[in-house]
Computed example of a mutant assay.
Amino acid sequence: MRDKVKDVANRIKGLRLLAGFSEEQMAAWLNISKDSYIRYENGEDDIPISIIYEIANIHGVDLTDILTGVSPKLHEVCYVKKGEGLSVERLDEYEFEDLAYKYANRKIEPLLVTLDPKNNPELVIHQGQEFNYCLEGKMKVIIGDKEYELNPGDALYFNPAKPHKMVALDGKPAKFLTVIIL
């Protein structure tokens, strides 16, 4: 995983340098400290997926460009068989599988997410809108000071600009579909 983090970090640094932006500018646009941005860009810290989305938006590139170094090519249909989504190894607390990574100019980002019950992630924020649909297990979604318990078949739509996180319940993994509207 460390090599993948370094590859993503190098692509982010390359985009910044090509655009002529400073580390200070990027940190300010991302609303993080310059030190945090530098650690992300140097591959010293895992970059939250929400930060990668924002970096992609700043540079006008697809998320897939940053994650893989290859631009998505499909414009009509993107067919992804079970288990063949792009593994997005960003945070140890969440296992992401991008289900539309081959489709260019996406307006939504559908991700299959697996929660490990041993993990307690930090709250995150990002732009857009978010939809979560619980597929397996039991999970809790914390949004600001409110908590929502989701069982298979339950759904939640919310503003991800509010600090939020998802955790597995009952000591068992949980799996859910999240759709982020960009």
Rank of each mutant, 00 (worst) to 15 (best):
M1P: 06
R2M: 04
K4A: 03
V5Q: 02
K6W: 00
D7P: 01
V8Q: 01
I12F: 00
G14V: 04
L15K: 00
G20E: 10
S22R: 11
E24L: 15
E24W: 09
E24K: 14
Q25D: 15
A27S: 11
A28I: 08
A28Y: 12
A28E: 14
L30Y: 01
N31E: 13
N31G: 06
S33W: 04
D35W: 01
S36A: 11
Y37L: 09
I38E: 10
I38N: 05
I38R: 06
R39E: 09
R39A: 07
R39Q: 10
Y40A: 01
Y40R: 00
E41R: 03
N42L: 10
D45M: 06
I47Y: 00
P48Q: 01
P48Y: 00
P48L: 02
I52W: 01
Y53N: 07
E54D: 10
I58Q: 01
H59Y: 08
H59S: 02
G60W: 01
G60H: 00
T64H: 03
T64I: 06
D65V: 00
I66D: 00
V70R: 08
K73W: 03
K73H: 08
H75L: 09
V77G: 04
V77M: 10
V77F: 11
C78F: 11
V80M: 12
V80H: 11
K82V: 10
S87P: 09
V88H: 03
E89H: 05
D92V: 09
D92C: 00
E93L: 03
F96L: 13
E97M: 12
E109F: 09
L112P: 07
V113N: 05
T114L: 10
P117E: 08
P117F: 05
K118D: 15
K118S: 15
P121W: 04
P121Y: 05
E122R: 09
V124H: 07
H126T: 09
Q127K: 10
G128M: 02
E130K: 10
F131P: 02
F131T: 02
N132P: 06
L135C: 04
K138L: 14
M139N: 07
M139I: 12
K140E: 15
K140L: 15
V141Y: 06
I142C: 14
I143K: 14
G144A: 11
D145Q: 15
D145E: 15
D145W: 01
D145Y: 06
Y148E: 14
L150M: 06
N151Q: 14
P152H: 03
D154M: 05
D154Y: 03
L156I: 02
L156E: 05
F158G: 04
F158T: 06
N159P: 09
K162Y: 12
P163G: 04
A168M: 10
L169Y: 08
G171L: 06
A174R: 07
T178Q: 02
V179P: 02
V179H: 05
V179K: 06
I181E: 13
L182P: 04
L182V: 10
